[in-house]
Every structure is written in structure tokens, then in C-alpha cells.
Computed example of a mutant assay.
Amino acid sequence: MKGIDWVVAVSLVAIGLSCLTMSASWLFNQDTLKEYLDTFLVICLFAGIPAFLGGLLYWIFKRK
């Protein structure tokens, strides 16, 4: 993939995560930025930990 492909892919993921976070944070409290950031952190952790573990397992098996 070229550089512009990565930029487009990362921006689409970021837009999707922000939309998911916005809809989830409006369920609890619409007025605070702290609620938005807390929900964003939780969503990123739930998405990032499995992606990291999958990448780590892929790297381990690819190395052998």
C-alpha cells in the first residue's frame, strides 16, 4: 500500500471510532467532554487490545 492509502484507511477508522463514541456517549451524558473521552478510551482499548494480540501472534508465527 502506498502512503495515501494508509492515510485514507486511518482517517476512515478514526471517523468511524469517533462516530461510535459520539453515539455511545450521548446515551449517558450529553454535556461533558469527559464522558466522550472516557468512552473513546474504552472503545479504543476494546478495539486495540485484540488487534495488538492478533498482530503479536501473527508476528510470532511468521518468525518461526
Rank of each mutant, 00 (worst) to 15 (best):
I43V: 10
V8P: 01
G55K: 01
V42E: 08
G55L: 02
F28Y: 11
F40W: 10
R63H: 08
I15G: 05
R63G: 05
V8K: 14
A24H: 10
I43D: 02
S25F: 03
F52K: 08
N29I: 11
V42C: 04
N29M: 11
S23Y: 15
L12H: 03
L57N: 06
L12S: 09
W26N: 10
G54R: 02
E35G: 07
L56N: 05
D38S: 13
V42S: 06
L27Q: 08
T21R: 08
T39M: 15
I15C: 04
V10P: 03
L20W: 02
P50R: 07
T21D: 07
F40C: 06
L45D: 00
L45P: 00
L41A: 13
S11W: 05
N29W: 12
A24L: 15
G55D: 01
W26V: 05
L56K: 12
K2N: 15
S25E: 08
D38P: 00
A47C: 07
D31A: 07
D5Y: 11
V10Q: 11
T39C: 13
K64A: 07
W26L: 14
K2M: 06
I43C: 03
V8L: 13
F46N: 00
L33W: 09
T21H: 08
L20V: 03
P50L: 07
W26E: 10
K62D: 11
L27H: 05
K2H: 06
I49H: 03
T21V: 09
S11R: 08
G3A: 13
M22N: 04
L57M: 09
K2C: 04
L17R: 01
S25L: 01
C44A: 15
F40R: 06
G3I: 13
T39K: 11
L53T: 03
